[in-house]
């Protein structure tokens, strides 16, 4: 799963709703696995499927008009539960980028730890993206992590990411590798640390 990301050029799938919580992304009853794989099948389960398992035709993931590696969603995406399964499900369903005007903190960290790039854009730019994609589902988005830009129809916006995380994503490093590399320093800290 861990692999470097830099430039992603793709069509996008718009989920035009705000405050999408992680219970919608992956409901709790699907969290019983003890592995990280296979959660994509139940991504947006209750919006995507009826109780009998048949697809709901009006949900965007079931609309063959839309495809791509980029998910575009309304503000406050990923709020609620800390379940990393939400990031696993999105990644497992073939997405490398989520674009929103606002991400919940825990989801953002979980996404970054799974090489799923959260791109925060202005509300105006987000609305332009929705309009463009919904008008022409073939609209291509260019996401460039190195330059920290996202471009659609010639309009670009830059996005923020801290230098450390950017380096990790560009090179396929993870936080655990980094923390393990400084375990000596952690032991020295522990030695001096007496708690409060």
């Amino acid at each position: 799963m861990s692999k470097a990301i830099n430039k992603i050029a793709s069509r996008a799938v718009p989920v035009h709703l705000e405050n999408i919580d992680t219970d919608q992304i992956i409901p709790a009853r699907f969290l019983k696995a003890t592995t990280r794989e296979g959660f994509g099948d139940n991504l947006f389960r209750d919006w995507r499927y009826n109780a009998d398992g048949t697809p709901k035709k009006d949900f965007v993931l079931n609309d063959p008009t839309y495809s791509g590696k980029i998910l575009v969603a309304g503000k406050n995406f990923g709020c609620g539960s800390s379940r990393e399964h939400a990031a696993w499900a999105i990644k497992d369903a073939g997405f490398d980028v989520v674009v929103s005007s606002f991400f919940a903190d825990i989801f953002k960290n979980n996404a970054l730890n799974n090489f799923l790039l959260p791109v925060t854009v202005s509300e105006d730019f987000l609305q332009q993206l929705f309009t463009a994609i919904e008008k022409d589902p073939k609209t291509k988005l260019d996401v460039n992590l190195g330059d920290q830009t996202i471009t659609a129809n010639g309009h670009s916006e830059t996005f923020e990411i801290d230098d450390y995380k950017k380096t990790c994503l560009l090179n396929g490093y993870d936080d655990i590798d980094f923390l393990l590399s400084i375990r000596g320093e952690i032991e020295i800290f522990e030695h001096q640390y007496a708690g409060i």
Binding site: S82, E84, H85, I106, N109, N110, N113, D175, I176, L179
Partner: peptide, 13 residues
Amino acid sequence: GIGTSEVEMVMAT
């Protein structure tokens, strides 16, 4: 609250 990758980080370090 933290995600599972972070649970692993804390377990490791």
